[in-house]
Design a protein around this nucleic acid. Structure first.
Lengths: 121, 121
DNA sequence: ACAGATATATCGTTTGCCGATATATTGACA
DNA sequence: TGTCAATATATCGGCAAACGATATATCTGT
């Protein structure tokens, strides 16, 4: 098998943050942003299609939650949250992705100019 | 500017091998394969559209060469080779890509499980 | 009452990898 | 001399996925 030129980083980061516990979609995006110092962003147009793929592939399982606010009481439908939990299969996939990423990074080194050490003069 | 989730690795590796001197398309592909221990491959369907993009973007300049074989002498058209040379703009782009890649890799670390050190027991 | 954050989701566009296919030249070997 | 693999360029259609825009609704703070 040949390493793909094009890696699915979004899948890696989503599975990665889910490895520490179940999260709902919006929280996944926030977590990814936080961990990357706000430089990787899972925008809605990326996030929800991705989660749908992950669920379909059996990498995560999902359950709905309805949050009723104290203010609104029983008068409203409440906010919907869809919680995602990493499956055993998802955990294996994450491990595979992580290994592949490390290998990937090692290979890319061969195409980067050598690290310039601090100037000694 | 936000780091793209989807990085164009093919562009990086092509520019990278061209940084050491002009090459023609096929040679670029061979060089990329060689440097990556045959794990990154620029297949024709990737390579030529890529080179067209690079040329159009002014990152490389191209010149045709016609190689006449000794055997065939003047009886044949000769094999065509299109040589690509990194432009100043291309060199800047490469430097930018390299910096972005290093930053990219640093960020990804935050999503990989900690390196397991050699077992001490 | 209102604005902004939270929360989910879809849509069309664009990008670009990928495998297959096409065409031609050249070199090695029988 | 014939044949095959390697060299060399290039295009095509299919497809996966990122991206920006848009839509809808709820909740919180002022």
């Amino acid at each position: 098998m040949t390493t793909r030129i094009d890696t699915t980083l979004s899948e890696l980061v989503a599975l990665s943050v889910l490895a520490e516990g179940p999260l709902y979609g919006y929280a996944i995006a926030k977590q990814v942003a936080a961990r990357s110092d706000d430089r990787f962003r899972l925008t809605p147009g990326v996030l929800y299609p991705l989660l749908k793929r992950l669920e379909k592939a059996g990498l995560v399982t999902a359950t709905w939650e309805t949050v009723r606010s104290e203010r609104a009481g029983e008068t409203s439908e409440g906010r919907r949250r869809k919680w995602y939990r990493l499956s055993a299969k998802g955990r294996r996939r994450l491990a595979h992705h992580a290994a592949a990423q490390r290998e990937h990074q090692r290979l890319i080194e061969a195409f980067l100019p050598p690290d310039a050490p601090e100037s000694t003069g």
